[in-house]
Design a protein around this nucleic acid. Structure first.
Lengths: 259, 259
DNA sequence: GGCGCTCTAAAACGAACGTTTGAACTTTCA
DNA sequence: TGAAAGTTCAAACGTTCGTTTTAGAGCGCC
């Protein structure tokens, strides 16, 4: 018996891949992998093919709407490969989410730091919002090569599978930098109101679901160009600026201002 | 043989319920049929119990995350009852969606007509937005008895199961009245921009998912009161007004203004 | 009583599910 | 070259899935 790589019931011990293997590696067979129409197969190994197929299918149909057999078929690997490389279907989901969420946050924070550097420390509101909303919106462009990732993240946020729920609800550390920047850019705004501003601004980009955009096209009799992502970003940023400034004006309720 | 009510392969013919039976009890006019734990079965009939259990479970876990056995257990009916009353699991989903979407649109349109009547025909921007965003936000209050319905609709919009997709993407007739009202309230705004305004305004309320709100609470160190739905609505309306006004101001891109 | 009808009950259908097995194949390296 | 490690494979595991079947209460009515 060739050493089973894992025994789920007794903790991880043996040498199962799980993480990406060592540097250079032999490509295992089948070179016409074809993930989508017109994309080059590339020399992806099994683990990567599973990762990409799962990301795309989860984004399209949700976690429960995709079976591991759907994934292995799309990835052109054997059924057991998912368990071999990722342990289980839900661990696969978490693995994809971890990678993509980290990518998104890294890019957002890099843009924020650049903006702050450009302005000697304190970035103006518009640039903060552009750093926050830019990546998820601009990734939608197929030319960016990240549109699947963008869709996956939107789906993960909307679906909030139990595994993801805890992460989503408690881990907000990646937004702390934006909260601080916003607070500096909006010194007149009470702290809770700054949080609401951040909430609205983070939520908005993920509304640009295919379903919602098709809806918008139908509603406007095709008068809205939903594919010009740069224009969509401009609009979203302008909208958020106007909205946030309005949050500062007194409203009927008034309450909520502890800080 | 007791006359099978349906033969799926030969078109509907026999007398299976499918729609609400007798005159009196048309819609599942929920009196207070208990969402929470520890509630008595009540005298709701089987069809209504299925309807309510399915709505709640779909809202919590999504369509594919719920089995018909989960539903019949929660509704305390026999397994065959779903097929008997609704035909299939997906028809059950569509039935729930049809009822709740109609309710939502009816309430939205009633509020809009009231606002228009108050102002002799043309409602001001704030009242249009309040009619649009009010129902989904205010329903979140458990005291309204419609929080489950609100959650269900948000989930349906986010999940967009294939069955629902076609409806969501093509049927926008219920928004036409709001589009016209917005266009009248914003005469200076190009038509596509009015559509974008409506898009942002309809999308925003559904961001108030439990997951997102818990996130907001965590981010603000509990400084944001997410349960005061009236205050949330005020904030959302103020935000939308500010955002929409900003859409009118010139931006870098400028394009898109066909009309 | 017997018929027609509505509704519920228990059991079963075949298919699909996530996961595991044990052997075979390939690569690595002393 | 040979054993070990890494990887792929077909087949099967037991469970759960959505749906259907068959039977029979319960009831109003000529």
């Amino acid at each position: 018996m060739p050493q089973r790589p894992v025994d789920r019931r007794s903790g991880e011990s043996a040498a199962r891949p799980r993480q990406a293997r060592g540097a250079g590696k032999a490509a295992p067979a089948t070179s016409k992998v074809r993930p989508g129409p017109g994309s080059p197969p590339a020399a992806a190994d099994a683990r990567e093919r599973i990762f990409l197929a799962a990301e795309r299918l989860f984004a399209e149909r949700g976690f429960d709407g995709v079976s591991v057999r759907d994934i292995v078929e799309a990835a052109a690997v054997n059924l057991a490969a998912i368990s071999y490389y990722f342990g289980s279907k839900s661990e696969l989901l978490l693995a994809v989410f971890a990678v993509r969420a980290k990518e998104l946050n890294r890019e957002r924070n890099a843009l924020l730091r650049e903006a702050e550097a450009r302005h000697g420390g304190d970035a103006p509101l518009e640039e903060i919002l552009r750093a926050l909303m830019g990546p998820p919106i601009l990734w939608r462009d197929p030319a960016s090569g990240k549109d699947t990732a963008s869709r996956f993240i939107a789906r993960a946020l909307a679906e909030a599978t139990p595994d993801l729920r805890e992460i989503l609800e408690t881990d907000v550390s990646h937004l702390r930098g934006f909260l601080a920047a916003l607070a500096r850019a909006l010194p007149h705004l009470p702290r809770p109101e700054v949080c609401w501003a951040l909430h609205f601004a983070t939520a908005l980009p993920h509304q640009c679901t295919d379903t919602h955009l098709k809806r918008l096209k139908a509603l406007s009799d095709d008068g809205c160009d939903t594919r010009d992502v740069a224009a969509v970003l401009d609009r979203a940023v302008a909208y958020a600026i106007g909205g946030i400034e309005a949050l500062g004006a007194p409203r009927r309720g008034a309450g909520d201002a502890k800080t």
